[in-house]
Amino acid sequence: MFLEVKDLSVKINGDYVIEDVSFDIEKGDIVAIIGPNGAGKTTLLHAIMGLIPYEGNIHWHSVAKIGYVPQRFKFDHTYPLTVEELFLLKTGQRSFWFSSNAQINDIKKALSHTGVEELSGKRVGELSMGQLQRVFIAYSLFGKPDLLLFDEPTAGIDIGSEMSIYGLLREINHELGITIVLVSHDLSIVYQYANNVICINRKMACFGMPSQVLTPEQLKELYGPHIGFYEHDHGDEEDKS
């Protein structure tokens, strides 16, 4: 086992945003977290990273380095920061100004993992959403993590890039052996890429293999009765296989 979460609760401004959530993650897993808007998915990631106070237990079975790719964040697109400089923020105090060839090579290598090596001299604000997402995935790989957390990795990018980003995540998982936890609202992605799924809606709703726990009843309970479209889709696929 890699990570064990037991009875995790998080209070924000006096109210529970997450209550009694428990699951565990094995090394090499791809785990999806699903749930409706405001279900506490991002909060759960923040708790795992130790960014916010929580009640309950988060137990790491080995020392883990976490890489985090945040949900889209707002920034000024005229900000004068190049992709290379973004990566240098992660290195030592002096190296931002006097970077060695080895460091520049490491940056190029991380960028080549996500196929965007040529972007290192570009300004962060000039990138498209898809490019930005790949740069941030490379950025999270730059710290040589054991666990990558992705918060809605494809929010705001077109469907073609979306599919290739998930393919990329699977590649990272296979080739680099990095455990991946991703937040998604797209159930077809969850079926296709995740070997375990955590459903939360403030409280724990389900945990297990997608094909076993994502039953129509479960989804209805999680998202409400309007989930019909998805449910039907995947019900069919499940029948065929």
Partner: peptide, 16 residues
Amino acid sequence: YKDFTRLTLSTDFAQS
């Protein structure tokens, strides 16, 4: 310098 860069780029990023 680096803290200020992250802060002024995006507070969400700095926090993450």
